[in-house]
Structure formats: structure tokens, C-alpha cells
Design a protein around this nucleic acid. Structure first.
Length: 566
DNA sequence: AACACAGGCAACCGCCCACTA
DNA sequence: CTAGTGGGCGGTTGCCTGTGT
């Protein structure tokens, strides 16, 4: 807590001594010097500012030696970065900043420092606090974390990323070395770059559906895999504070920088559950889209954030948007809500002990999903064939009504997914019903209207959001067609449903419950890889959930592990 | 008006990782 | 290989403020 208000009024008892006699002290690591903790005094600030003026930033541990300031280096660095640094903005975020934060978070996840790089004068901590507060608010209000605009933008960019990924992989397969360009990124990647991509200027536009995007499309249901990326691969975190701007501008150090960024963008968009290629217009014009996506967002709201080591219960840290939807639209006639939420949530809370990591050297190692993808890619030599097959199975046609509905998540659909044993403690239906269609003018991202609508008093937030939100009118655009669609939704939270749907088959002929991955999924995974997994799956005894698999569960690809039930 | 309570927020701490000498 | 350093991020703490009683 600062000792100084924004007007420069210094609080009492903290003015005179740089040591701040009221402060806490701790033993220094070196020399037994007592270092102060706690709030900074203005005198300390002055010392630090003076030091930085003289010596510049960096070498923070020298501050204490040279200036006599009884603060550890890190404390000095943080103080400088968060409070004393020139050009720091103080005060509330502007609407533009809020919007940018939302967009950035949709793309990056909890990459506060990187987000801060896009917000001059703002610090990562400031953004984090803002976001966490915002999350709480929206969770209570049963609102989605992201407005549709941010979702769509992130989605579009993610599609490009997927395409880039495809190209990169193709490039690798065609050239063992990356000598064609020093970064291993085809020149074509930048040819169609949209110059107005303020958020992700490095993301080029690439046309068409691709093998990897098809995979993503089909597997984006398992976005949790990639959501865990920052957790599971934290050790692989790359330094990229400057790469957002520098990578495209030529400052990129290597291809991994670039692709790590893609990975983050990737994660954001995998969750949208939108058909590919994504038709922006058809969806943005469809009011249902926004409202219905909320359902998943609401779900995600309930799952939000934080990370733990992989070996323990894992909480999600990526934006809810990123695990907002499963994308059965890519597999079936339309996009679906997130039937995996429950099961995946369970999965995440009790992940398999093994680490699903691909040996594939792809730089896009973003977690379970990427691991799967990499495996699939590695195993598959017929990348483009997959695209054909998958596009056949995913009959989404941009622009038509079916497509629009494919983007939608309807209450009734959610009711289909209301799993009685949801570990979330309530069904997806109830979660969805808590959310309210987002209005176009909510693009201000101000939650207060919702608060008023639902509560009239923040105090009332203490009550479950559904107490207030359920009174909101249900999506009136529900149609018979979509209701029909809903009957085709696959509830893969239940192995039975998988079995019923044909995705999995009992092999009762062998006298015991076995699961065989059907060709449909095989197609999705591409034939080569799936055949391998088929064998693995065939050896797994189902026992209502694959947790009792007799084959090596840890060796199962993430996509199958996701089916584990509570 | 006083009080209790809950939420918002700023700021710090601890852990971890990447980089570098 | 190791220690030092900088940096990122999750979590926590405590104060402030608004609201209801």
C-alpha cells in the first residue's frame, strides 16, 4: 500500500525516514542487512527515483548498496515499474483500455505483462487486478467474460494461426531444415497480413481450411488441453515481452517466439466452438450467437482461473472464452455447447498423472490439445486428406442459416447436456440459464447495467446469479430446426452417449466391455494416428468411464483422456 | 446516524522460470 | 553447471467504499 495518495498527500508516520520506521523488516539474504517490507514511503520513493535517474533501470539489487535504501532489489523493481516509472497512468481504465484488455485477454489469456505492453502506462499488475475484479463481477452476474466482438476477433485470428501452423508444418515436412528463411516461417505468411491488426499484427491472413484447422475444429472440444498450456508448460514459457511488436517488425528472434504467440492466440480461439471457416458476417449478424455463447461463457465463468502444478489439481487459468465452447459444430451438423465442461472439469481436477507431451518438435506445444495435434500430425502423412474427410463430416456452410444456428447454443440444447452428475454442482442447463443475452451496446463492457438488471444492489450479488438472471427472457429465436439439431447433440460427458452415438463402440463380442474408436473419430484424428489409438482404446475396458482403463491411460492421447468421467 | 458486511482495489509476497556470466 | 538477476504471475492482505439494516 502506498503511503501516498495520488494527489501526493503523504500519509502520516511515513514521511521522514527512508527506512519507514513503521514498516516491517526482514532479514536480507546478503550480509544480514535488514530490509524493509510493506508500504513504501515517499522518502523511499524519492531515493529510488533518484537512483534510477542516475543509474538507469536494472541492476536492482545494487539499489540497496548504492542508495542505502533498505529494500530488496525486487521490491525496488516492482515499486519502480508499478508506481514510480514515468508515464504511468493512474486512475480507472478508460473504456478503450477496457475493451483492449478484454480483447487481449481473449487472445492471450493471463499474460498480463504482454497485455500491459499494449496498454501504455498500465502495468501488468494493474491489468490483472482489473481483470480479476471484472471476472468476479461477471461471474456473479452470470455474464460472459467476453463480449462477442472480442470473441470473434480472437477467433478469426486463431484461424489464421491455425493456418500458419499448417503451413509451418508443411514447410517443415518439405524442408528438413528451415534454411529457406531464418525463422522457418514461410514468406507467404506475411504476404496477406492485414495491416490493421492492431492486436496481433503478426497474424497474417491465410485463406481456406487447413488440416490443422480441421483438426482444431474437430478437437476444439478438448480445448482444455490447450488451456492448461500455461500451466503444464510453464517451464517452457518463452520470453516474449517484446515480441508482439517486434516479431513481425523483424525483431523476432526465432520462430519459437512467433509460434508461442500463436499458441496463445490459438488457445483463445479453439474454444469458440465456431465452425470453420468462420463466417464473421453471418455470426455477427445473428443475435442468437451472442446470447447463446454466453452459456458457455457462464460455464467458464464458473471455472475460471489460476494455475497449479500439473501434478496436482489443475485449475484453469486461461480466459473462459477459451474453454467456452466445445466445437461439435466441426464434427456434426452444427456447433454445440460444451458438453465436456463437466467431464473436463473433472479431468482437470484429477488429471492423469502422466504428462501428455508430444515429442513432435512443433513449436506449437500448447498442452494436451497440441500434444494430440502434434501426435496426429506426426503420425499422419496425409494431412490434406484429412481436411477433405473432415470437411465432409462437418457440414457447416458459412452463411446459411444452419450455419448460423451452428454457432448458437440454445437453452434447450443445454438442457440436453444437463448432466445429473455434474461435478460443478449444477447442470449446464442451470448455468446457461443464468446467463443473459448480451446486448450489442454492452460493448462498453460495463457490467453495471447487468448488475442493475439483476440485483439493483451489489449486495444482492451474494445470491446466486440465477436468482436474478433466470427471469431474463429466454432466447426467443429458438426454432424447431434447432431443437431438432439439439437432438443430435452428442453428450460426450457420458461414455454411454458416445457409445450410443457411434463415436465409440462396445465390443461385447469379446466378452467384456471394450471401446473401439469408430471411424468417425478416426477420420477426425486422421487415419494413421487414429488407428494407433484405436488399438489403445480397444484395449481399454470402459467400466463407465475410462478411468479404469486397462491400457496405459497415460499414453492415451488427450482427446481420449478427456472422456474420463468422475 | 451508526454499524456490519461485502466488494473493489492497490500493493506486496512468494514461487517459478529464462537468461546470462 | 551454477549462481545471480530480472521478470511473470498467482495469491494474499489490508484499506477504502458503498450498501443494507
Amino acid at each position: 500500500m502506498t503511503s501516498e495518495t495520488e494527489d501526493g498527500i503523504v500519509s502520516n508516520n511515513q514521511i521522514d525516514s527512508p527506512l519507514g520506521e513503521e514498516g516491517n523488516y526482514c532479514e536480507s539474504a546478503n550480509g544480514g542487512v535488514i530490509l524493509k517490507k510493506g508500504p513504501w514511503t515517499s522518502a523511499e520513493d524519492a531515493i529510488l527515483v533518484e537512483y534510477v535517474k542516475k543509474h538507469g533501470e536494472g541492476n536492482w539489487n545494487a539499489v540497496q548498496k548504492h542508495s542505502g535504501l533498505s529494500r530488496c532489489g525486487k521490491s525496488c523493481r516492482l515499486r519502480w515499474a508499478n508506481h514510480l516509472r514515468p508515464n504511468l497512468k493512474k486512475g480507472a481504465f478508460t473504456q478503450e483500455e477496457e475493451q483492449l484488455i478484454i480483447e487481449l485477454h481473449a487472445k492471450m489469456g493471463n499474460k498480463w505483462a504482454r497485455m500491459a505492453a499494449h496498454l501504455p502506462g498500465r502495468t501488468d499488475n494493474e491489468i490483472k487486478n482489473y481483470w480479476n475484479t471484472r471476472i468476479k463481477r461477471r461471474q456473479r452476474a452470470g455474464l460472459p467474460l467476453y463480449p462477442p466482438e472480442a470473441s470473434l476477433q480472437a477467433l478469426q485470428e486463431s484461424q489464421r494461426c491455425l493456418n500458419i501452423d499448417r503451413i509451418e508444418i508443411q514447410n517443415k515436412s518439405q524442408h528438413d531444415t528451415l534454411q529457406s528463411n531464418s525463422y522457418g516461417i514461410p514468406n507467404v505468411m506475411f504476404d496477406n497480413l492485414t495491416p490493421n491488426q492492431s492486436i496481433l499484427p503478426y497474424v497474417p491472413e491465410l485463406p481456406d481450411i487447413t488440416a490443422s484447422s480441421v483438426l482444431m475444429k474437430g478437437l476444439s472440444s478438448f480445448q482444455y488441453g490447450s488451456f492448461m498450456s500455461p500451466i503444464m508448460h510453464r517451464q517452457k514459457r518463452l520470453r516474449e515481452a517484446t515480441t508482439l511488436s517486434s516479431s513481425f517488425g523483424g525483431g523476432m528472434k526465432n520462430e519459437f517466439h512467433l509460434f508461442d504467440q500463436f499458441q496463445d492466440v490459438d488457445k483463445a480461439a479453439q474454444s469458440f466452438g465456431l465452425p470453420f471457416p468462420f463466417d464473421y458476417d453471418s455470426t455477427t449478424k445473428n443475435p442468437e450467437f451472442f446470447g447463446e455463447n454466453q452459456g458457455s461463457h457462464t460455464l467458464a465463468n464458473g471455472n475460471f482461473s489460476a494455475s497449479k502444478p500439473t501434478s496436482e489439481a489443475v485449475k484453469l487459468e486461461l480466459p473462459s472464452l477459451q474453454y467456452a465452447e466445445t466445437d461439435f459444430g466441426g464434427w456434426g451438423p452444427s456447433c454445440s455447447p460444451s458438453p465436456l465442461i463437466d467431464s473436463v472439469d473433472t479431468f482437470i481436477q484429477s488429471p492423469p498423472t502422466g504428462t501428455v507431451e508430444s515429442d513432435c518438435p512443433s513449436p506449437r506445444n500448447s498442452g494436451l490439445l497440441d500434444a494430440l495435434l502434434n501426435e496426429a500430425k506426426t503420425l499422419s502423412s496425409a494431412k490434406n486428406q484429412l481436411s477433405d474427410k473432415s470437411s465432409n463430416s462437418s457440414t457447416v456452410t458459412p452463411g446459411d442459416n444452419a450455419d448460423s444456428s451452428a454457432l448458437n447454443i440454445c437453452v434447450t440444447e443445454w438442457e440436453d447436456y444437463g448432466h445429473p452428475i455434474s461435478p460443478l454442482g449444477h447442470t449446464a442447463t442451470s448455468l446457461f440459464s443464468e446467463c443473459t443475452p448480451i446486448s450489442a451496446n454492452e460493448s462498453s463492457f460495463d457490467e453495471s447495467p447487468s448488475s442493475e438488471t439483476f440485483t439493483g444492489s451489489k449486495r444482492k450479488f451474494g445470491c446466486s446469479a440465477e436468482c436474478y438472471v433466470k427471469s431474463e427472457p429466454v432466447d426467443q429465436t429458438w426454432t424447431a430446426d434447432r431443437e431438432k439439431e439439439s437432438s443430435t447433440w452428442l453428450d460426450i460427458t457420458s461414455p454411454d452417449a458416445l457409445l450410443d452415438s457411434g463415436w465409440l463402440e462396445h465390443d461385447s463380442a469379446h466378452g467384456k466391455d471394450q471401446v473401439i474408436v469408430t471411424d468417425a473419430m478416426a477420420t477426425l484424428l486422421c487415419d494413421d494416428s487414429s488407428s494407433e489409438y484405436k488399438q489403445m482404446a480397444a484395449g481399454a475396458s470402459v467400466n463407465h468411464g475410462w478411468g479404469h482403463s486397462s491400457c496405459s491411460w497415460n499414453n492415451m492421447p488427450a482427446v481420449y483422456q478427456m472422456y474420463e468421467l468422475p
